[in-house]
Design a protein around this nucleic acid. Structure first.
Lengths: 157, 157
DNA sequence: GGTGAAAGGTCATTAAG
DNA sequence: CTTAATGACCTTTCACC
């Protein structure tokens, strides 16, 4: 189920230079083109690679403020809350969690002032009792996966 | 600085079917091929589209457990903590935040038991006073950007 | 709009588990 | 025996000028 060392190198190469094709990748890796193609097909089939969609930066869209909100939910309202938050564009991500928190969501906003509007819109829903928000100041480690890929590849015998 | 409606449609189309090229995209959108190409170049230049790297699923790599840890940092140890956490592959993301929390990080692990090991490794660092962890149970809204793109595109005149 | 190149597929051969 | 890698060939499609 895991990935081997060659899979890891393919993923790393594609992450570094997404524009290169299968042929160029095979050249750089020193393997046959068909091999790279077969590996990629397998990685997609296994769900390891979900796709190659565009990575959009919310800040460049005009939403430079990011925050994480911990939501406390009324008993039995979880389903309604999810359905509601799906409809809020500024909610980029939503998780249900253990702990008192119940839910954790990632928000973006146009400014700190605008964040208040977003939070009001989130908390305004009936099923949400209260929200505790942490505004992101810096992002020393942006969402990454390569180190984990390397570890997973190395652990495969 | 924002994006217009056509930009939005281009991004949406590429998100839905990343494999299609510029030519096929222009056909579907009913615009000239050069237009799509120019728009894409501009979106990349503006930083709206950061790239087309592979989206890797940690679960498929053997790390199905996700957690968010709020870290409390010793005064003046922030820089050291960042440098340390960068070296931990299971740390997928790290933010410094407002509030008592100081830092928020996203972790993955091979199992709930393995999560303990990861947390120990994180908290084991000297500059970290303590960690409060929320384990993710469900993910009703996986990281998404399209609704925000649509809103940003609609708001542009 | 034309052209060189690459993607994607199939095949037979070879190697390794 | 099964799985994977390889190099060859072919057709369609795209990117670039």
């Amino acid at each position: 189920m895991g990935i081997d060392e060659l899979d890891g190198r393919i993923i790393k190469l594609l992450a570094d230079e997404p524009r290169i094709g299968v042929l160029e990748a095979s050249r750089r890796l020193g393997v046959a083109r068909g091999t790279v193609q077969a590996r990629l097909d397998r990685l997609r089939a296994n769900g390891v690679i979900r796709g190659f969609g565009p990575q959009v930066d919310p800040a460049a869209l005009g939403y430079p403020v990011t925050a994480f909100a911990t939501l406390e939910i009324k008993q039995g309202q979880g389903t309604d809350v999810r359905a509601y938050l799906v409809g809020v564009p500024e909610v980029l991500e939503l998780h249900t969690t253990t702990g008192h928190g119940d839910m954790l969501c990632r928000l973006v906003a146009r400014s700190n002032a605008d964040l208040q509007r977003v939070i009001d819109r989130v908390v305004g829903f009936d099923g949400i009792v209260r929200a505790s928000t942490a505004i992101v100041m810096e992002n020393p480690v942006p969402l990454r996966i390569i180190p984990l890929v390397e570890q997973a590849a190395a652990e495969e015998t």
